[in-house]
């Protein structure tokens, strides 16, 4: 129960942050030249000033910045994200269409990075300064140093063009409409390269953290106690070291959920996935303020949700949290 109230308090504390972010993004976009109507007019191939004025009046863009902000926040309180002039649909619908791809990509990349980061970190720590460690650390550094977009493009060149093993982009094959399991497989196939591209970078970080914290924990007194009980090394690692070494990594996941959303913009663009990241990019170009603010709002909620889960997980892993002492 204490854990829940602790996490709940964290949740409440993030609301002001959320409002500040929204206001900040709103004002920042006012500084950018042009608005939705300019973008629409450009798409239509131009138009006269009266049409533009009428459109601005229709979308409420002729009001002062503060009145617009006030309107927006008031709508948000009623859980209304507004209407996207560009897509001609409510923002909530636009986002709902794009959300699954992003969430799928993030979950897949995060799980991949976490799982392999953990395993490789443990292997590297157990063979510290021997060849497995050197090999893993070198590859880790490579993935860490390589720009995500470049890695994505190279992966397309190798696996899609030369080898033709995997599709080069998209979320699913739109030429044939699969259903059920066949569709799931199709989506999975499309997501392999994006997941690797996004995940390898994070895996490199996690494996370094895991290696470091494993080495630290292996030197602690209770590991010596475990050995003095007559326990073999594998058991020592699994039963005493692993859980302790996981704590820093779990913290890191919470911190990096936001960064990962940012990284997905690049990956979604490279692999032309219909996700939130690409939607955000397009909204900026088209000055679609409502959609953009909606995305910021949803992303912030996503990050807060991830952190909430991480808090619960952390408390589950570490009994010292629950008593609050």
């Amino acid at each position: 129960m204490r854990v829940l109230s602790l996490a709940g308090r964290r949740l409440a504390a993030s609301i002001p942050t959320l409002i500040l972010i929204l206001i900040g993004v709103f004002l920042l976009l006012q500084l950018a030249p042009g608005d939705t109507v300019d973008a629409m007019m450009a798409q239509m191939g131009g138009g006269d000033a009266t049409t533009a004025r009428q459109l601005r009046e229709f979308y409420g863009l002729d009001l002062s910045v503060w009145a617009q902000l006030g309107n927006y926040l008031w709508r948000l309180v009623r859980l209304d994200l507004g209407f996207s002039a560009i897509y001609g649909k409510p923002v909530a619908t636009v986002i709902a269409e794009r959300l699954p791809a992003t969430i799928l990509l993030m979950t897949a990349s995060l799980s991949f990075a976490f799982f392999f980061g953990l395993i490789l970190g443990v292997v590297a720590a157990r063979g510290v300064n021997k060849w497995p460690d050197t090999l893993i650390s070198t590859f880790g550094l490579m993935f860490y140093a390589m720009p995500t977009f470049w890695f994505g493009l190279m992966a397309i060149v190798v696996f899609s063009i030369y080898l033709q093993w995997l599709p080069a982009g998209g979320f699913e094959d739109i030429t044939v409409s699969y259903t059920g399991l066949r569709r799931t497989l199709d989506i999975a196939q499309h997501l392999v390269l994006p997941t690797l591209t996004l995940g390898l970078f994070y895996m490199a970080i996690y494996l370094r953290i895991m290696r470091g914290s494993m080495l630290e924990v292996l030197n602690l007194d209770f590991v010596r106690t475990a050995r003095s009980k007559g326990m073999d090394e594998t058991r020592v690692v699994v039963r005493h070291v692993l859980r302790n070494a996981l704590l820093p990594m779990v913290t890191l996941i919470g911190l990096q959920a936001g960064t990962m959303l940012g990284g997905s913009v690049v990956v979604e663009s490279v692999f032309s996935l219909p996700g939130l990241g690409r939607l955000a990019y397009e909204s900026v170009i088209q000055r679609d303020l409502n959609t953009l603010l909606g995305i910021v709002f949803v992303s912030a909620l996503l990050v807060i949700a991830v952190n909430f889960i991480v808090d619960l997980l952390y408390a589950r892993l570490d009994p010292r949290i629950t008593t609050g002492s």
């Binding site: 602690l220 010596r224 106690t225 302790n244 009994p319």
Partner: peptide, 13 residues
């Protein structure tokens, strides 16, 4: 051992 706090694993009962 000397320091019973650190000689016991903090995460296990």
């Amino acid at each position: 051992f000397q320091e019973p706090m650190t000689a016991l694993n903090p995460l296990r009962s």
